[in-house]
Design a binder for these strands. Structure first.
Lengths: 239, 239
DNA sequence: GTGGCGCAAAAGTCTGACTTTTTGAGCACA
DNA sequence: TGTGCTCAAAAAGTCAGACTTTTGCGCCAC
């Protein structure tokens, strides 16, 4: 699926990055550039570039005479799409999925409210089309088709909000939705209530009703959170 | 303020990065590594590492036979703290500040709600202390002292939410708050209503009242948005 | 006009030498 | 015994130059 032969640099990065985010080298571990270069059978130049990129993601810190130190998790640039992808592919995928879903639940309602104010006619049309597409694929195990429309729907809302920070979460939301379909609940059709909510959000945005768009999207988000609680209960249940 | 002599690599990055985010090289511009290396008087190795990092931020794309192309703004990793810092230091600071404030207004209320559920006793104590500090410095042009407590307050709330994505926005919020004090409204004392709201949020979190913590924080956020509208009206006023 | 051929430009990679910073061990001295 | 200084080694940082690979584009034949 992902491009295979796009330079040594990228290949080493795609090997070392996931290893670090997966905790294979626990925080505080010290690596040495030369040693890594040998291990991956590349020149020091290539390995230095890899380390520089990992450093820019705050996954590691490079210090003279010490080496390349893995940083504690709290310092990682967890918004870097690359880091998100690595973590979603790794062991703490559930934790990551939960974090991202909570983030969605905070951002998307506000984005929908803004979209109701700012969406262009084209965006409204596209949104309605997506909602209809979701309805059309909501029954009969057409999960892949449904997913496509679902991803497009949420991306359009985030784009139409007119806020670039929101817009850039489109990829993240798409990953979360795809992950849900492909790993967790791919055996049953989507919740009919959720489908209806999407249609109504499209309506509200089209009519410029910000408050309603926000409230309805909040309902969608709450549904997603509930779903998550069922599949993977939160770390500390209320005592 | 910022460290001065931390390697050639970092210095060149801190020179080229802001230039790109400032639009000095408009999207689509093509740079050549060798030329850049000459311009900055560094070796190709150093310049290649810089380009790699810029590439990992999606600011540029490097392709053989073509060169290093500046990417369109929509593709930049706008959540990268480095990119945020560069943009806040540059010309479209107001736009950036607005985007971030809207993001805050979406995230912080939800974070406060979670904090009410998850905050430890220590965090509650620290929060109350910050709120009291804000009260103590809210009059008599003690803006710097107020800022310190304000930043700490919001960082604690984001941390206490227990969501790592929220927690990592602490630095961003701190930048926004600092920017407000240092650039925009440093002539007058903070809004007394906002101060009170902070105190009440601390209370709500301490009492574990999630709904109230969320609602109160939403009020704080709305205040910040209103303030922004007064200082720099939004691009398209409602027709 | 269309399609293929080949050139050259630019990034990519490798190697080896040299510099700089920093740590920690060893030693001298109190 | 403990404190502080010196110094050597370790690792990253920097540089220069040669070579490889990809690829856009011009040119030419058809």
């Amino acid at each position: 699926m992902t491009a295979q032969a796009r330079g040594l640099h990228a290949r080493v990065l795609d090997s070392l990055g996931p290893a670090i985010t997966a905790g294979e080298y626990p925080p505080g571990s010290v690596l040495r550039t030369d040693e890594l270069a040998q291990r991956f059978e590349v020149s020091r130049s290539v390995m230095r570039e890899v380390v520089r990129v990992l450093e820019s993601m705050h996954l590691v810190a490079s210090r003279r005479r010490v080496g390349v130190t893995v940083r504690p998790t709290e310092e990682w640039n967890v918004y870097d799409p690359q880091v998100i992808r690595w973590r979603l592919a790794g062991a703490d995928r559930p934790r990551q999925l939960r974090s991202l879903t909570v983030l969605r639940s905070a951002v998307e309602p506000v984005a929908a409210g803004l979209a109701a104010r700012n969406a262009t006619a084209e965006q409204c049309a596209a949104l309605t089309e997506c909602a209809l597409g979701m309805v059309a694929t909501s029954r009969g195990r057409q999960l892949e088709g449904y997913l496509v429309h679902d991803m497009a729907f949420h991306r359009i809302v985030l784009d139409a909000s007119g806020n670039e920070m929101f817009a850039r979460l489109g990829d993240v939301v798409a990953e979360v939705l795809a992950g849900r379909t492909h790993h967790d609940v791919m055996f049953e059709d989507p919740d009919p209530a959720a489908v209806t909510l999407h249609v109504r959000v499209a309506e509200a945005v089209r009519e410029g009703d910000a408050a309603r768009a926000e409230a309805l999207t909040r309902e969608i988000a709450e549904g997603a959170l509930r779903e998550l609680d069922i599949l993977a209960p939160p770390p500390a249940p209320a005592s």
